Simulated assay, not measured.
Amino acid sequence: MCDDSEVFRFGLRTVLRSAPDLVLVAEAPDSSRALALADEHVPHVALVGHDTPGNGALQLVRELSTGGVKVILLSETGTRADLVAALTAGACGFYVRSVSPARLVEAVRAVVRGETRLDEHLLNNLDEPTVPATGERPTPETRLTARQQAVAALVAQGLTNSEIAASLHLSQATVKGHITVVLRRLGLRDRTQLAIHVNRGRPGGRPPPRVGPAPPMTV
C-alpha cells in the first residue's frame, strides 16, 4: 500500500491484517518507494492514496498496473472525474477513503479474482456530460457522460459487457448501448479501436494484464 499519511497507513495495516487470507508485504509513503517495493515483492494488489507524493497517484497506477499489479485507488472525497481518470489509468478499484473495512477487504479479494469494484455512492452521479473549462473547445470526449467514459475505460481494460455491467450496476443491454454511443461519438469502428484509443496514453499502449488469484493474496 502507498499513502503519505502514517495514520492512514496504520488504519489500512490494521484492516488488512484482520483478514486471514490477506498478507501485507510492504507499505510506502511515496510513489518511488512504492515502485521499488512492488518490484521486490510483486504483490497481487496495491492500495494507493489519491494524493500520493512523487510522480502522482495516477502515474503510479499506470506503472503498477502495467506490471501486473491490481490497483485500488483511495480518494479523499471522490468525484466522477477522479473515478473516470482512475479507470483510464488502469485502476481495478476506486473508493473514497471512508470506505468500511469490510467493503475494502472484499474489494481486495474481488480485484484479485479479476473483477472491478467501484464506490457505489459515486456510481449514482455518472450520467452528466463532462463540461470543458471556460474557453476550451469541446472534444468528442467531453460530449460523453462520465458513465460512458467509465464504460470506455473498462472496455480498454479488457472487461466483457457482463463484467462491465456488474461493476457499474447496469444491465448488459445498457452497457451495449453506451458502447454504441461512445463508438459513434469518437468515430471508432469497434471495441478494439476503442481500447487502443483509451490506452493511447498508457505506457506501452497496452491495458493492464488481468491475472488470476494465487493464495495467499499479497497487498
Rank of each mutant, 00 (worst) to 15 (best):
R147A: 03
D127P: 00
T180A: 15
R143I: 01
Q193S: 07
I196L: 13
L159P: 04
A150H: 05
L170D: 13
R137C: 06
G158L: 09
H197T: 09
V155R: 09
E136M: 07
L122T: 05
R200K: 14
Q157S: 05
P129N: 07
A195Y: 00
L154R: 04
Q148Y: 03
Q172G: 12
L168I: 08
G177K: 11
T192E: 14
L170C: 07
T145I: 03
N124H: 14
V155W: 00
G204L: 15
V155H: 02
V155S: 03
T134R: 03
L194G: 05
L159A: 09
P140D: 02
P203Q: 05
G201T: 12
T174G: 05
V131Q: 08
G177Q: 12
G158S: 10
T142K: 00
H197C: 08
Q149M: 08
G201N: 14
V151D: 03
Q172P: 08
L170M: 12
G205Q: 12
L183E: 14
L183W: 11
L122H: 06
I164L: 01
R191V: 12
I164W: 03
V198R: 02
E141V: 06
G205L: 14
G158H: 09
H169R: 08
R200H: 15
G177E: 12
L126D: 05
R137P: 10
A166Q: 11
A153T: 08
G201I: 04
P207V: 09
G187N: 01
P140I: 06
R189S: 10
L126G: 04
E128D: 15
P203V: 13
A153M: 02
L170S: 06
N161F: 01
H197N: 10
H169G: 11
